[in-house]
Design a protein around this nucleic acid. Sequence first.
DNA 1: TATAAAAATGGTCACATGACCAAAAATGAG
DNA 2: CTCATTTTTGGTCATGTGACCATTTTTATA
Lengths: 193, 193
Amino acid sequence: MARRTGAKGQRRIEEILDAAEEILVEAGYGGLSMRGVADRLGLRLSHVQYYFDGPDALLEAIFDRSLTRSIEVFETRPKREGIEAMVAFVLEDQLSASNCRMFFELWALAARDDKANAVLARYYARYQSYVESIVASEYPQAKPAQLKRCAVILMSLFEGLSLFRGVEGRIAVSRRELDKDIVKAVRAIVEQS
Amino acid sequence: MARRTGAKGQRRIEEILDAAEEILVEAGYGGLSMRGVADRLGLRLSHVQYYFDGPDALLEAIFDRSLTRSIEVFETRPKREGIEAMVAFVLEDQLSASNCRMFFELWALAARDDKANAVLARYYARYQSYVESIVASEYPQAKPAQLKRCAVILMSLFEGLSLFRGVEGRIAVSRRELDKDIVKAVRAIVEQS
DNA sequence: TATAAAAATGGTCACATGACCAAAAATGAG
DNA sequence: CTCATTTTTGGTCATGTGACCATTTTTATA
């Protein structure tokens, strides 16, 4: 970008990002194009190009916005909730289908793009802090290394479960029981052996 | 495809798939093109097109081959191994970096393509059976529902951990300790409460 | 060896895409 | 109102891509 914008421009940018996000979710990275975004909004190609240098810049902006939002979501949660509430929250709310798909694209990108990788690393570092703090509030006696491993396992579990959402004929397990199992697992890890 | 091929053709197809796989891993879905594959091999575009109708067919074939290989890998493992050995195996061997990237692309694709989704669902159904059988061999008293939840959790964990591989500044946790924690978690889930 | 199938060559074509440019219109601060 | 800035229009262009076709060479088999 690197372009001065007024209030109208900011609104335009949001509009463009909304449309681009829709397309990304519907058609994936391969289906995202400047022209496609412009067409969807009834704008000229060069109009979109005025705000975003190219498809890469667009993609980057989408991910930036999305990650920022996600971080806000969990960092503004009440600090005093327990593990069970966190599990329920993460498995229910945060992973909306479309957000989920965006993350798939982002993971795929991060595997080969250093910049995306760095962005993702920063995001998950904060995510990890959040998870650790929740676990720590319920198990204050847990050692830092234990907390860390526990957070890694929980995050991996959350991400993994979100992958399996949407897989047809998937996992017909009871969410309630699953939640309980996860809580059990955390206890097993974090209570001193 | 739908093309009769001799032995030479089969070799060509493998060659093409190898190159396509490389490109996919290096450049992602967006970077995969028939021409790119042809160029990498020093073939004509139309030569590649002789074997694969278009980029989609190519992609599908890559994933087919890859999933078939992955299934073979774990289904030919000795049946009598325990959970710990499985965890160590999955976390070490199966998830080679490049294979990992391919799966990222595949997940992203499956999120919006029904056919890919179905393929993935079939793959993970078999994967799940494998995991269940391993857990069952160590905990014969476990109920089917418990086994299932346990398998889902383990698979999610494996996939999730593979996501975090490669994330810069990631998870500096001891693999040894992590493995232990996972085994602990399984026990907690599967031993009757 | 004859010959049909398979493998490979060589090329054209239409199409979508993004880079790039020039200019007009709308907007808002002074 | 004025005028610089922001926003928007309208267009060209080179490029990369896959679809498509006709043809030749190689291969295997009867």
